[in-house]
Design a protein around this nucleic acid. Sequence first.
DNA 1: ATGTAACAGTTGTAATTGTAACTAACAAGA
DNA 2: TCTTGTTAGTTACAATTACAACTGTTACAT
Lengths: 144, 144
Amino acid sequence: MSKIRTFDMHKFLPYLLNQASEKSGLAFERHYKARYGMLRAEWRVMFHLGSFGSLSATDITFRALMHKTKISRAVRALELKGFLKRARQKLDRRSESLQLTALGFRAFEKLRIVAGEFDKEICKGLPEADLMVLRKCLSKLAKN
Amino acid sequence: MSKIRTFDMHKFLPYLLNQASEKSGLAFERHYKARYGMLRAEWRVMFHLGSFGSLSATDITFRALMHKTKISRAVRALELKGFLKRARQKLDRRSESLQLTALGFRAFEKLRIVAGEFDKEICKGLPEADLMVLRKCLSKLAKN
DNA sequence: ATGTAACAGTTGTAATTGTAACTAACAAGA
DNA sequence: TCTTGTTAGTTACAATTACAACTGTTACAT
């Protein structure tokens, strides 16, 4: 039985991406889970608000590739923890501008440091040149 | 306020990995969902059995980085669809060897072709040299 | 052989999630 | 003003999932 022209699943990009993503995602999860009782969705919302500043829920939907109900619930959870405050937009009262509170930002800053160490750790063993290529490819794949 | 030594989250690998993984995973989902009513967990189990041959549920747990209850239920779903059969191991009657049926393998073969096209599509625009680096890095990240 | 611990896989239950339907706010043409 | 259509975000409910407790099997020291 010939395997000619048969696609090799070991090279299937969605598979490789998922493996790598799950591995690192699971490993990092314990940091925000243990310290702040946050779910992954909450961490992602905090990550976006901390990194990009004030955003609306819809903004986060597109940036984080998460469903709007998931975001709605994560926002409420963060709000209940006192990590986030919302403010109705004056110009369009349908949408609200989300922002980390001082408390939320302190938590984000702590996690940012942990994230930096974590990132350094998992990048160990990969040449800097490869990392540049890797980041470039991942950004492209996420956009398209 | 100085940003010196502050980690740039845009380069945070778990974030980039998740973005790229979600994007491609969501896009490919419709193929097995629409044609075979399979969930992502089911597709992953089928993927592993189709690619690597006969495996036990525990094998898949480690290879696919999925929780064992998720696998247990995916296996049952595939079994009900007639895509998979199980056989108790003679030597260790706790574990069972899972294998695609002829029907299951035909479905896998069809999806494999779709996967090949899908993969080609999302790789478009990335130089072959970069893809080699990308795959190498992803494999390493998944192992560690 | 017997007790204890480890392991493969399943199931009950509670938490999380997705889908579709909803409310409230805007927009723009008749 | 009064539709009609769109958008931001929420909620009800059903589907999916995780966690812990469970059954049945094996390993192995006593």
